[in-house]
Amino acid sequence: MSEAIVSLRGVSKSYVRGKQSVEVLQKLDLSISRGDFLALMGPSGSGKTTLLNLIGGLDHPSAGEVVVGGQRIDQLSSGALAQWRSHHVGFVFQFYNLLGVLSAEKNVELPLLLTPLSKAQRARHVATALEIVGLADRAKHKPSELSGGQAQRVAIARALVADPTLLVCDEPTGDLDRKTADEILGLLQTLNRQHGKTIVMVTHDPKAAEYATHQLHMDKGRLIEQSANA
């Protein structure tokens, strides 16, 4: 069995809404191996995105341990967690979340501004990331000048550019047509297989889940089924 890059032990997460406390995740244990491509599935409100946020260091659990890349991130302060995210996690969102005022290359450069790299070094990394996602010729275009698929590729390039340990994708094809979605999923698969990136992807789409190496089904804050794709 390969090394676990993500390990969750007894993780619970609850939110207070009004006077009620809603438990979104309940004493959840999970281990994700380095090089996995995991599809997190389940109905709305099952806790998929909350789990993804905990793995990506965007949120703190109410109880339990979250270890990513050998580091316990549930105990990190907000500042330390921000620094940790910049080094270890790349995020891909359903609606791309690119900055509309910046060109594709400037969007991709954003995570690198947090590093000590020189301008020339940053430019080289950006060019490589755009090359990987097949958008080298769209570097100067603004998000409004790109199609949905192209915008999502830029978002993937942005997630990749700092060479993170983990790629966290929240419904990356939720806003795309079937054909474009297949292209994006194919790209994620390539990143997993050829570049060894560990990917955790939330999706509602069973077809999208087929691109992953493993599937994990959730309901009411619990893991109910885990399976490996052929």
Partner: peptide, 13 residues
Amino acid sequence: PELAVLKTLGYSD
């Protein structure tokens, strides 16, 4: 949303 994305990418408070 844009500022939230920056923070997601690791931009500190």
